[in-house]
Structure formats: C-alpha cells, structure tokens
C-alpha cells in the first residue's frame, strides 16, 4: 500500500496529460457517434452486434487490464528504487499487448472471411473504424512500452522516472478507452 502521500504531485509530465485528455475527448465523440447511430437504427445495430464474438472482446479487455496492471506495478517498483524489477515487469505487460493485437487480427480475419467488411453496414463501418483506430493506439503503445523497458534498464534518475510515469499513463489510457469501447460495441 502506498500510505499517505504527503504532497500533491502530478505524475508524469503535464503535456502527456493534455494529450491524453485530447485523445479521450476524441474517443468520447466516437462513443457518442456509435450510440447515436444505434439510436437511429437500433434493430440493425442489435442484429449486427449479435454477429460479433463477445468472447474476443472480453478476452481482449482482460488482456489489456492485466497489461496495465503489470505496467502500474512496474512503475511502482521503479519508484521504490527496484529499477530492474520494474523493467522486468514491463515484459509481461508487452506480451499481453501483443496478445491483444493477435486476437484482434484473428477477429478481423474471421469477420472478413465471413464476408463482413468495412461497408457491410453502418454498424460495421463504425466497428472497424473505431476498433481499428484503437488498435493503432495499442500498436503505438507497444512501441512506448518497448521504449520504457529500455529506459528502465538504463541508469536510474529523476527524468527516467518521469518518462516511465508518462509512458505508463499513455498505456493506461489505451486500456481505459477499450474499457468503454468494449461494452458499447460488444455488449449493449
């Protein structure tokens, strides 16, 4: 447990929070678009949604959650001075992210094999676009994790801690956005 933290301090750097906020605003527009089209044509939505495999979506949620957990633990250990443990914890985090990408490709592949493509209907347009843009974030995030791993293995200093925190915040955002996107696309 991190006991009472005495001073208020923004983890990571300010810019990354601004970026994260901007990205979250963009995804909020995605969420609203999705629900607006659902409102306009609910039957089509429900029918198309039933063609999705909820298990893929849920497994991917669990993978990203676990990945985020490893990153949070890694940053926590790194801050405590156990920098090498911190670096090692980023490896399973990366692996979970790769798992997400793998499942996503499997899922897209199945859909395309079943003849469901970008322009099949409104629902699938939004499905491919929004999960695709999210997938792009995951790919960028994997690059970030690799970079963090290299930083964490190097000589520890204050700026390295800040870099780790900033990168971690980006990765958690990727997780957070999927947590909202998943129920909107697959569940409700």
């Amino acid at each position: 447990m991190t006991k009472n933290v005495p001073i208020k301090r923004l983890p990571g750097e300010e810019g990354v929070w601004g970026f994260v906020f901007g990205d979250m605003v963009m995804f909020t527009m995605f969420f609203a678009t999705l629900l607006f089209y659902r409102y306009e044509n609910g039957a089509l939505f429900a029918q198309s949604q039933s063609l999705l495999n909820q298990n893929y979506g849920a497994m991917n949620t669990l993978l990203l959650l676990t990945s985020s957990w490893f990153v949070a633990l890694g940053v926590f250990q790194y801050r405590k001075g156990k920098t090498q443990t911190g670096a090692r914890l980023l490896i399973p985090a990366f692996a979970c992210g790769v798992g997400f990408v793998g499942i996503k490709f499997l899922e897209f592949g199945e859909k395309i094999a079943a003849g469901i493509t970008l322009n099949s209907n409104e629902f699938f347009t939004l499905y491919y676009m929004f999960t695709g843009i999210h997938l792009l974030h995951v790919l960028v995030g994997l690059g970030v994790l690799f970079f963090l791993w290299r930083v964490a293995r190097g000589a520890p200093d204050g700026s390295a801690t800040q870099t780790l925190e900033s990168g971690g915040i980006f990765w958690h955002m990727v997780d957070l956005l999927w947590i909202v996107l998943f129920p909107l696309i697959y569940l409700i």
Partner: peptide, 22 residues
C-alpha cells in the same frame, strides 16, 4: 454495464494513472 465500465475507468484513473495524488 455502462456504470460498471465507468467505475472501472475511475479505478484506472485514480490508481493506475495515480490521479489520486495529483
């Protein structure tokens, strides 16, 4: 389901992204 999703979002914001100390 939506409320659960946003509870999860809040947990991530506060504990993973450490906003509770911000």
């Amino acid at each position: 389901i939506i409320l659960i999703a946003f509870l999860k979002v809040r947990l991530i914001l506060l504990y993973f992204m450490d906003l509770r100390v911000a």
